[in-house]
Design a binder for these strands. Structure first.
Lengths: 337, 337
DNA sequence: GCTTGCTACTGGACCGGTCCAGTAGCCTTG
DNA sequence: CAAGGCTACTGGACCGGTCCAGTAGCAAGC
């Protein structure tokens, strides 16, 4: 069986390879009659350009990379990543780009993977998630000259392009909501303190509780359900226990709700709960969970779009994607005397 | 800045391009002295092979494809996919292969995507998930000659390579567990009837309840928490309601538990629940959920390994990965009179 | 001394596209 | 009718690897 290449099309059409590319790529330099003939032959042969050959020729891999450096367990439990990837992929697919997804075990492996991708010219750009303060990836990516969009606050991006959501305003709204319900002692069960977005929210939480005059407490965890439940139990056992808790993700909020159930503490009668990410989980519990909601798929799409901007020569910039919205559900209740 | 290519290394080492590849790839044909010199120069220049050029030359894309054809919502809520992808990726990463992940809106788009990948030589093989009876993807992949491993039962694979878990034995174990607890009327809240693995489990459920003499009922849903909860409410409202329910995934089981809570039906005192996939969700509820557990990351790794076998010329075969194990937790209880 | 065989190379085709520099042929224009 | 300009091509370099077919040089064997 003869291979379906541009050369074969040229042979059958009785023209040169170059004429065929001009015809196929809609470029000038061929007559309409020739173009039509070439297109028809290409169609008959069911030809499509060999992408690897194209990529070598245009010196682009037409691939964008995403590295996830959390354990498989956490990744699979948090709905965030899959939705985010779906958003990215939607935009890449439209432009016939491929998403290269790597999962590694830690920061060092992630740095090594970027170096490898860069040297091997495997990706044209990367999306960086879970940015933290003084992130070692930022200087590396700058040095490699690898176009990158960070998912995180401009305060963390150090001049690289980033897309962020305004969690400061969102946190303020969540605390106001609790204050309006009459709560005076509230707590935040947060992710690891060294995560950039956790730090941003810690700061916002401190500012908002100071502003509203609420007494506040913060516990840091590893984002897992187990630690979310444990932190909830600890808080509930303390003297002067809080009457409302803001969790840093939905998994911990669900786990916290179960922990309260186990302690015979009722939600929302005794304690009000707020989850940070909103997903189906928050709607299937009883009571349903008040949650800070944002469109993660859209977020992924925005990040991909900004990365394409960079590839097309745009200067790195910070883009505000949106401010998460508080969805009030059954787990919110007024303070009872 | 001069580009770091094999030609530049050859120039500096004073040998030909061919000698350089032999040296770098550990092939015979160069002296040890030359090899050492070439390796050192490559190291100094921080050289790594341009993957696109390699791929063109060896006529492989060194990329494997996975297409997910569910809506982003479902994908992100079910921990299965992310864990499975993590398993795949672990094996691909070791071999320096890339995972190309596409997300599409339906079966037609999925077929079109395979055709495109095949014509464009973008992937060397694909992993196919959510196989159903008379799956249109199977004849297409055969026709395209695209190496593929199906995630599903050999009954569905029609001669293509597949990796499966023995849900028939697992279902039997689950039903036995309920029978031993004294339950006589049990129900299964299943996924969509046209999903292959749902059909396999439907058949297994029918066989196991017949064998044990239990009265059985099946409700099909779309796998979502909302429909899982709705099906639970319907079952509970029926006369002669079941005293145990086996759910087809963990999300529906969690939703079912909340629905029971809402109806003031207690688990496990009044009803025993079993979830099919086991994830963190099953361990953070109160009561914790008995679940059919299998190692999804390992499953993904097995599938990737089998796909590499195919690429290396192995004949397509069916591989049993494992039989899911029942993890008995607090949601299991004896029938109360 | 001549053949044989081995090591250690070299030169260049090749993968399948893209794209630049040239050119044949025709029309216009003064 | 020659010069100039335009259209519609062609030939071939190029991207950066891999790998095959050849070959120089040297030692061993008869």
């Amino acid at each position: 069986m003869v291979k379906v290449t541009i050369r074969e099309i040229a042979r059958r059409a009785g023209v040169s390879k170059a004429a065929v590319t001009y015809a196929l790529n809609g470029q000038p330099g061929v007559s309409e009659a020739t173009r039509a003939r070439v297109l028809q032959i290409a169609d008959e042969l069911d030809w499509a350009p060999n992408q690897v050959a194209r990529q070598l020729s245009v010196a682009r891999s037409e691939t964008l990379g995403l590295i996830l450096a959390r354990p498989a367990q956490t990744l699979s439990e948090e709905p965030f990543y899959m939705a985010f990837v779906a958003g990215l992929e939607g935009v890449l697919g439209q432009r016939s780009y491929t998403l290269a997804l790597r999962m590694v075990n830690g920061p060092d492996e992630e740095l090594a993977a970027y170096r490898k991708w860069s040297r091997e010219k495997r990706v044209d750009g990367v999306v960086v998630v879970d940015v933290n303060a003084d992130d070692a990836r930022i200087p590396l990516l700058k040095r490699l000259g690898l176009p990158a969009v960070l998912v995180g606050d401009p305060q963390l991006a150090d001049g690289l392009a980033c897309v962020w959501t305004d969690s400061t305003t969102a946190m303020s709204a969540a605390v106001d909501h609790l204050a309006e319900l009459g709560h005076r002692r509230i707590a935040r069960i947060a992710g690891p303190a060294d995560h950039g977005h956790v730090w941003i929210r810690d700061t916002a939480f401190a500012a908002a509780t100071r502003r509203t005059g609420l007494s506040a407490e913060v516990v840091h965890t590893d984002f897992s359900g187990a630690q979310g439940a444990a932190a909830t139990r600890t808080l509930m056992a303390s003297t002067g226990r809080p009457t409302a808790i803001i969790y840093d993700n939905d998994l911990m909020a669900v786990a916290g709700l179960s922990a309260l159930d186990n302690l015979d503490i009722r939600c929302p009668d005794d304690v009000t709960l707020i989850a940070w990410d909103d997903s189906a989980l928050c709607r299937i519990t009883h009571p349903t969970l008040t949650a800070m909601s944002h469109d993660v798929v859209g977020y992924g799409a925005e990040v991909a779009t900004r990365l394409f901007d960079l590839l097309e020569g745009a200067a790195p910039a910070a883009h505000l994607y949106s401010t998460p919205q508080l969805r009030i559900r059954q787990s919110s209740g007024p303070l009872r005397a």
